[in-house]
Simulated scan of single mutants.
Amino acid sequence: MIPATTPLVGFSGKIIWPLGQRSLLVKIGDEEHSTSAWMNFMVVRSPSPYNGIIGRPRVRRIQAVQSTTHGMLKFPVAGGTVTLRSSMIIPLECTMVSGPGVPQPLINQVAEEKIQVAIHPEYPEQTVAIGSTLTEKGRRELCSLLKRNLDIFAWKPADMTGVPRHIAEHMLNIHEGCLPVRQKKRGQAPERNKAIYKEVEKLVDADIMKEVHYHSWLSNPVMVKKITVAEECAWILKT
């Protein structure tokens, strides 16, 4: 991996310093018709719903034409043109980035693409999302497979202990020599304080968190209510 010295700026204005960059030969299409091109990827340590994002320069390189309205991508190959179709989720995300005018029928279609299924009898409130395009037989087989492997999922905070650092490790995205940031402590409403203490106790009991008496950093907690995808889309429309 080649070092990268240029920072990346997200939609929220957050600056992310890449771990490096790597050129990979990317093949797009199917087994019968495809095209290949060398593409330069910036590797970042940041949560994302995508494994990789192809920028406009690389889209031009494969001579592709995309339509967010129809959720389609076309590009020439030897012997014709290949057409790729996406799900309704991708156009919705692109539309939400460009503006708030997302029609309600489109949101309903996206919400219908996922089915919430409870697979653990002891945790019925915790569900997994399964695509609604699966057949009834495929849905039963997938649920059966998940139920046979319940031990690989984390159902409570105590299940997440003992993860090796080479698998998962949290790091602060700061430069060496920067002074610690200490925010002014803000109070919380009584009902929020109760919820915060309840969640903190779960993490402390599971040895995920520990109490620090002389900390150099201070960041106030920000409480966010858990909502469904449909509720989130509706909230975006209102704002």
Rank of each mutant, 00 (worst) to 15 (best):
S46V: 09
P91E: 06
Q183W: 07
M88H: 12
R85A: 10
S12A: 12
V65M: 13
K137A: 07
Q66G: 11
P221L: 08
D151S: 11
T6V: 08
N40E: 12
D159M: 11
I167A: 04
G131D: 04
R140N: 11
W217E: 14
G187I: 00
L25T: 07
V204S: 01
V128S: 03
Q63A: 14
K14Y: 13
F41W: 01
G131F: 07
S36D: 09
V26R: 03
I196P: 01
W217L: 14
W17Q: 08
T95C: 11
A168C: 12
I54Y: 04
R165T: 10
V181P: 01
G177L: 10
R56H: 12
L218K: 06
D207W: 00
C233M: 12
S219F: 14
K14A: 15
V44L: 09
N173F: 11
P91I: 10
G55P: 10
G10Y: 10
V224C: 06
T5P: 01
T68K: 06
P18W: 00
P100F: 13
H166Y: 13
V200I: 12
G13Y: 14
V9Y: 11
R61D: 14
V43Q: 02
M39W: 08
N193R: 06
E32Y: 03
T69E: 13
V102P: 04
I15G: 05
A189I: 09
G131S: 13
L203F: 03
R45N: 14
T239D: 07
Q188H: 14
M1K: 14
P164T: 02
R61K: 10
A37I: 14
D159K: 08
L172R: 14
Q104G: 01
K185Q: 15
K226C: 07
V110P: 01
H70E: 05
L172T: 08
P124E: 08
I119V: 10
I119P: 02
V43N: 00
V128P: 02
A154P: 02
L142W: 00
L203A: 15
K194H: 02
Q104N: 04
S48D: 14
V82A: 03
V181Q: 15
Y50P: 01
S86C: 13
S98Y: 13
G162K: 00
G55L: 15
N193C: 04
V26M: 07
P121L: 05
E122S: 14
N51W: 05
K238V: 05
Y123G: 01
G162E: 01
Q183A: 12
T68S: 15
V163A: 03
V9H: 12
V102Q: 06
V212P: 02
R182Q: 15
G52H: 03
T5G: 03
V181M: 10
G101D: 15
Q63P: 07
R45G: 11
W235S: 13
R22A: 10
Q109A: 10
S67N: 05
S98D: 15
L134W: 02
F153C: 04
C178L: 09
V102D: 07
L92K: 09
G29K: 07
P124K: 04
T35Q: 10
W235M: 14
K147A: 15
F41L: 12
V163W: 01
C94K: 15
P91D: 13
N173D: 09
